Amino acid sequence: MNRDDIFTLYDLKVEVIQGDKDMVCKHNVGDYFLVIGEDLVFPENNRFSMYSLAAILPLLPAKQRELHKNDWMLSDSVIACPDPHCGGRFKITRIDKREFSHNDCTIVPIKGDE
Rank of each mutant, 00 (worst) to 15 (best):
P43R: 05
F90N: 00
L53K: 13
L74V: 08
K21V: 09
N28C: 08
R47D: 06
V35P: 00
V35F: 02
K63W: 08
E38Y: 01
L60Q: 10
Y32F: 11
Y51M: 06
A62G: 12
S75K: 12
Q64K: 04
Q64N: 05
V78M: 04
I56C: 07
E66Y: 14
I56R: 05
K26M: 14
L34V: 08
A62Q: 08
K63P: 08
K69F: 14
V78D: 04
A55N: 13
M23E: 09
Q18S: 15
L67G: 05
N46E: 14
N46G: 09
H85L: 11
W72C: 08
D39M: 07
Y32V: 00
L57S: 09
P82V: 01
L40R: 09
G30L: 05
V29S: 03
W72S: 11
R89H: 04
S75N: 11
S49A: 14
D20F: 13
P58C: 09
R65P: 01
Y32G: 00
R65D: 03
Y32T: 00
M50F: 10
R89E: 05
I79F: 09
C25Y: 13
A55L: 10
C81T: 04
V35W: 01
D20M: 13
N28L: 14
L34K: 07
L60R: 10
M23H: 15
A54K: 10
D76N: 12
Y32S: 01
P61D: 05
P82G: 04
M73T: 14
F90C: 00
L74R: 12
M73E: 12
L40M: 11
P58Q: 02
Y51S: 07
M50Q: 12
F48D: 01
